[in-house]
Design a protein around this nucleic acid. Structure first.
Lengths: 209, 209, 209, 209
DNA sequence: CATGAATGAGAATTCATTCAT
DNA sequence: TATGAATGAATTCTCATTCAT
């Protein structure tokens, strides 16, 4: 063990790390992982590419840390809400609202959590597919509302939520590994129930602040 | 054009197209768009790279067609359900169930509709982030169930649905463009209401077949 | 020696050959050698790519024959003029006029004799270089005309001719191999004299029909 | 930016650019734009292909710069001559001489300004076509000289100049757009007059230094 | 320590040519 | 004999990562 790092150096090191992470965050928000070229991050951070590798072992590691750093703040807030006062319903409402509000205000970084932009043509195809899935849902919702089966609601938002709900539940990391037929059935039923309940229950505003 | 194409050749041509699409589908299921290298598809289909370009103008076009072909069948089924008999609730249930069931049975292709895989490390980070978001939700749900506020339910599935719902509603193509503060507020409220309703209503099984 | 080809077959063969050459000519006129893809020629000629290779050993050979065929007619006319009646001056005038007039009327095939289109950027650069060379010449010509040293003339055409004259004389296939300094000097002097004479002599219309 | 670039590094950078341009120049002189493959240039310059792209955005840009660099010096000299002292005739003579002399001394790069080499066979055909055009002209010239109509002159050079003059005037970028019949007639006449004058006037050496 | 020049492994795409049918 | 499907070599360009200075 030779010298201790002086406080100054420590600080500088920490500083650089932060600057790199911030630069990466900006690039990710703008272009996703693919747009986060090391050279671009370095330029944005005002340093050399070599410097990046002094603080991060690889591009992937930098991305992971940038992602974690960005989401860390959100998680802190969400956890505070979860552990805070109020009924569960109120806290659920507050948690979703908190994330949603911040994401809508912020600089699109949320995108990086979910999907990776590809060529325009490919993105366009994905968008279209999701829109067509959503269109079917919207049609059903409108009919149900007209028939008085569902309470009035924002069908665009509901349809988006439904498509998001079942795709995430199916393929997302939260999806319970459903390898046996029985498990699959249970998962399917849970998802369907979730969606039906969400659109059926009266919008009584329960939970709203 | 002197000779007519023999039936055999016609068949082979159609065959090739199908073989390419099938090969692409396999690659996409395994690795997403990025893993769908032309050379890999060609190898998987047992032909030369040049052949791919006889049937598809570009890599992106091949992806789009593979995507469309795969989703086309689903959409047909969903539309039939939407336009079919039964209450809206029943049809919504049936639609979600149909997609879900088939996706769970199928070969992970659905993944490609949603997210673009990157390096393993990056994917892992995305997964973790979503899991941690889900964990918060699960904690709230469990507390609510214990307190009798929420009916008993599959908290894993519900949490996944919630995370999926708000991410899709926020960033997906279905998301209403929310540029004014007022619009954002309305969207946020719609999402929150959706989620709260979904977990609050009694699982009365309405809509189940 | 097996069978003789029937007259019919001979004709058909000749027919195909002509059709291919004509198709190639059209493609060359449109896009130069690079645009003369075998597949495009075949399509234009209404036959298969394989057929092309029954009549021409390679793409290059087809180009060469198409070029020769196209220029053959011109050469016939030019030779007739050269061997015809009239003073040398009249015949030179007639020869140049003949080629020029036909080229101006025709479908740009002449281009293929000289230069091969490349990427737009590259072509643009070449054009600019030649224009700037021409600009210098034009400036001198205008000054000379104003000073009464040169007779009035179309300076655009004269400049083009001069640039064409010396570049061709230098690098074209007609350029005498000038490897010794003495030869180079003689060539240089001949070119310069040519250009100066061309712009200095009064446009007395000698030779005009 | 912590460190300043050392003089040494600066030099190396400039060096690389020059080395690439020189390597490109050599390849172009040998094979034209088509022979200027990035890999070949990199090999010739003794570096990796990636390096090329650090200095030039694309293959086309490299070509354009190599072209411009080579021609820039020539244009400077020509402009100096055009703006210098002496009669217009003397300056025209000097300008043509300057370019000619230098091109004859240099490494065939001039070729790239004019024509885009293709396969050897194709080039050979082009050469032959031009030679045959030149042969007709030469025949006329010789007859005219024998008949005393034209003064003695280097018929090879004159023929080359004539072929160059009318091809450039016809198809080159300097060619006035001749879309109406009237314009074409005027252009044709200007070219013919130019050529006839050039070979008819006595070689009185006017303009020679 | 900091730099950024240098590397080189890929990846997409084109097209002349061949040959089974 | 005529077809056109099939091949695959060649070429441009990108970017994560390294390492001499």
């Amino acid at each position: 063990m030779a010298y201790r790092r002086s406080a100054l150096m420590q600080e500088r090191l920490a500083d650089n790390r932060e600057r790199i992470l911030a630069a990466a965050r900006r690039r990710i928000a703008a272009q996703g992982y693919r747009g986060m070229q090391i050279a671009a991050v370095a330029a944005e951070a005002g340093m050399s590419t070599g410097m990046i590798y002094r603080y991060f072992r690889s591009k992937a590691e930098l991305f992971v840390e940038a992602l974690s750093a960005a989401i860390g703040q959100e998680l802190k807030l969400l956890n505070a809400i979860a552990d805070g006062p109020g009924s569960a319903r109120q806290r659920l409402y507050a948690a979703v609202e908190c994330f949603t509000r911040r994401a809508l205000a912020g600089p699109g970084l949320a995108y990086a959590f979910i999907a990776e932009p590809a060529e325009a043509e490919v993105d366009a195809a994905r968008i279209e597919v999701r829109q067509r899935l959503g269109d079917v849902i919207k049609r059903i919702l409108r009919q149900g509302i007209d028939a008085g089966e569902f309470p009035p609601q924002d069908v665009d938002a509901s349809a988006a939520c439904i498509v998001g709900a079942y795709t995430e539940a199916l393929i997302g990391p939260l999806a319970p590994r459903a390898e046996r037929v029985k498990d699959r059935d249970r998962l399917t039923r849970a998802i369907c129930d979730f969606c039906v309940r969400a659109v059926s229950a009266p919008a009584d505003g329960r939970g709203r602040p």
